[in-house]
Design a binder for these strands. Structure first.
Lengths: 140, 140
DNA sequence: TCGTAAATGCAAGTGATTATCATTTAGAAA
DNA sequence: TTTCTAAATGATAATCACTTGCATTTACGA
């Protein structure tokens, strides 16, 4: 979907920083930190302060345009384009590439937990760490 | 196992702060932040600076006496006693209680990932968020 | 074109964690 | 037991990611 249309839907004004940031997430399906985004603006010759970037990211999360990803090994907040489907991540500990996987192996297990522990699960996080195909070959 | 013996095994000197901190993890099986620990010292009338507490936690993690837990709803680092077995957590979003579960539903799935995505998994993290039994009753 | 709420940009502020360094201390050696 | 020394502590300052306050600017509906 078009960037402008997406922004219109949310009621947020179409400003330069917002269009560029949303474009980064929509065009390529990448994981970005506020700092990564600041670098893009910097390199484009039109710097945008981090305060603005953080504010926009918060708004995009609230409007479900992007979502925060929780990666244990990352010490900064990372964001990705919001996905319609529940998904998990494969994180390469070598090159830090993150792969999206849209299947979930623990759905049945959640009802087990209710029986065994009386715990009512609302959601979960599941990340796999290891080596991606390319890094395995590089190591071999 | 005895606190003193545990410390001797690691080669770390048996100091007051280290004995108290290790005791907190060993006696009760609780999740603690650096700040939680500082409060304990404070209340015991023998304050210990946060810098010391952080250093000791790092050392304990390195020596595998405790391990860091990654809870996405927590904005501070949390630590728990190191467990011999692979485990997962049930985190109550209401009272923030954390329950340990020593079964794992995704072991088979990891070999699937290698087939489908060429990704070699070395480890994973899995946390469930929801309501514990007590909080469910309180809500009902 | 105007008016106004919303958005930006800058600067200062937070809060958790880390680093520096002088002083103290555990524990081995004499 | 005393001495010695590397290790540990305590106090302070520094960092780093992120947030907030506020004056200025701007998108966009009237």
């Amino acid at each position: 979907m078009n960037i402008d249309v997406l922004l219109e839907k949310t009621g947020l004004k179409k400003t330069y920083p917002r269009k560029i940031i949303l474009g980064l997430f929509e065009d390529r399906d990448q994981f970005l930190s506020a700092d990564d985004i600041a670098k893009v603006f910097q390199e484009a010759g039109h710097p945008v302060p981090l305060s603005t970037i953080y504010r926009i990211l918060d708004q995009f999360v609230e409007k479900h345009l992007v979502s925060e990803v929780h990666i244990e090994t990352a010490q900064v907040k990372l964001y990705e384009r919001a996905h319609a489907h529940h998904a998990h991540h494969l994180i390469c500990t070598e090159c830090e590439k993150i792969i999206h996987v849209e299947s979930c192996p623990v759905h049945d297990y959640e009802s087990d937990l209710e029986d065994t522990h009386g715990f009512k699960v609302t959601h979960h996080t599941l990340n796999f760490y290891g080596l991606c195909e390319a890094c395995q070959k590089a190591h071999a």
